[in-house]
Write a protein that binds this DNA or RNA. Sequence first.
DNA 1: CTATTCTTGTTAATCGATTAAGTGACGGAC
DNA 2: GTCCGTCACTTAATCGATTAACAAGAATAG
Lengths: 356, 356
Amino acid sequence: MKKKVSIHDIAKALHLSAATISFVLNGKADEKKISGDVRKKVLDYIKKVGYQPNMIAKSLRTGKSNIIGMLVEDIADPFFSGISRGIESIAYHHQYKIFFASTENDVEKTRTLIRAFRERQVDGYIIAPPPGVEEEIQALMDDNVPVILFDRYLPVLNTSSVIVDNYAGAYQAVKHLKENGYAHIAFITLQSEQTQMMARLQGYHKAMEDRDCTPLVARIPYELSHHDSAAQLVAAFIKANDHIDAIIFATNYLAINGLRAISSLGLTIPENIAVVGFDDNTHFNLFSPSITAVAQPIEEIAQEVVLQLLSALSDEKENKKRRTVTLPVKLVIRNSSFPKAKLEQIHTETSVMKNS
Amino acid sequence: MKKKVSIHDIAKALHLSAATISFVLNGKADEKKISGDVRKKVLDYIKKVGYQPNMIAKSLRTGKSNIIGMLVEDIADPFFSGISRGIESIAYHHQYKIFFASTENDVEKTRTLIRAFRERQVDGYIIAPPPGVEEEIQALMDDNVPVILFDRYLPVLNTSSVIVDNYAGAYQAVKHLKENGYAHIAFITLQSEQTQMMARLQGYHKAMEDRDCTPLVARIPYELSHHDSAAQLVAAFIKANDHIDAIIFATNYLAINGLRAISSLGLTIPENIAVVGFDDNTHFNLFSPSITAVAQPIEEIAQEVVLQLLSALSDEKENKKRRTVTLPVKLVIRNSSFPKAKLEQIHTETSVMKNS
DNA sequence: CTATTCTTGTTAATCGATTAAGTGACGGAC
DNA sequence: GTCCGTCACTTAATCGATTAACAAGAATAG
């Protein structure tokens, strides 16, 4: 490492005191009545030597780090990486940097991460919490550290949070399928007590009940939902309940593995079975047939989260206010059939079929 | 904020000096010959009050932050979010935290981010650099700060880097298509001078040349590659060159928009046109027909990057060594035709078609 | 001409750790 | 009895900023 130039080095070089440099650098020149001469000398000099303030020293003194700690379930999940991207971008414009980390829904890892964030004095937290970290989050709030939960909340805690109307999303999904003539609609979800999962399940149940339909639910362990085994479980479920003519998947990974299952069984969508996914995936419209999905407003979630956090950071009183924002979801209906024209084309060209 | 307990508070409470506490906490108890009595007293006390060291103070004193700064093009891109996830996970086990940020391939933003990282004294950098930040990166190296580039490198700089064999990937893609009877293979890439893009293009050119084929290349501006306009450009390109019977897409976003274009033209894969993508996407195998792709070894890239960085961090001498690791890519061949059986099924069931 | 008020800075404490150097008490050697 | 070496800690400087309190000299007031 080269010797980095500190505020004292500047002071020495200009025959001034460190305090003066600090005042100029922090826009307190007026308040502290620093002369124009000196201001210019300081500004010119720091430009010349390329002075970079040491935020660590600043943080130690002021107690503010200008860092936000963000905990998501999995940064590689398109839903979370999309939100992260939005949050990072907005926070950046407000001089905040973000620490990202993936909890993997693991309580112990989450605890460790919160502890690591605290040690680094992050100013605020954005968390998609796994159940089991209630104590740690309560401790943060007891210390007046701003915390915003998103995607889900912790029922026993009175926190600020940004969620979506999962209940309505699931309800609409059932309604949509019913209106299109599907009779036996199953719901495949995770073995999870998380609020967003419960709300989806409840929306499904209520919609089925309102139509005097018998619900049929499969619950898959979270750990398996990202892997091939989820596809196998779904396939077994479909085989065991062959009257099913539609499935709602409660997460995007489940939907993707569900599609694998459906494909492996030689079933086609929407002729043999209809599908609605949760968490719209940009790629869903490329699947052939493309998939209808309950889309969450990624951008709005990011905006709302940052908005709430900034307000809590700006003002102790704001931070004491607890607000829960519920954003609407949108059912993105995709005409997932093969258009006639296309079908015929496929048919007529079969003779010249090649592999890519 | 509640009063947090500092090392001095502990010292006062136990009638010891701050130094003693520090020694016990840092495993220097033996070296400094601290008695068993005192050790126990200290350890018990910190457990009791839940002492959390202030890493900011520690960083200020030691000059080490245990933070790695990571700059990717776009954290929402599955390729980058996958690598980020891997790197975060490995780094975590070595007590390093990661600062993520998206450059959006914007030079000015990248400069600002590097500056922000420097101000926070990050210990090392992992960067997928846009061209134009050579000076900043050289400055880091001049100051002996460890830097590892990945995905691409900067030709004028002698840095450590982890890349993949893009040249071979493109070459194999052409070879594969040729062997399957495709004659007119186009290459759609970005308007970009980045090394990974150039290597892919060169691999394509060489493979075409080796087979006495005339290359046909389209270059799309990076800014458009994520949007619908890319699909329109690709569609126009295909229409203008209707003898094309195969396309290699040089990035995953291009491939996805290319598929939209192909679909919008009413063409089918692989009957009318064959497609190979770069950057395998987990979802490519769900597209119907599924897409053959040049897959990058995400996990290995993450591992190799962290390995190199940790070694550079551990030792000044290691850091002076510059090494470039080139990992192999894998052509993931997917049988992307509609199996006969399925085609017939689609055909026979058209009569009962529904929408989902 | 002295007293008071501005101007324009400076001094020094502080944030919470780390660590080189120092110190008092005790034991053993000669 | 003096000298020296351990033992078991303590003192104090330091990292690079911020900021309340203070101060020297010029300007103005009375």
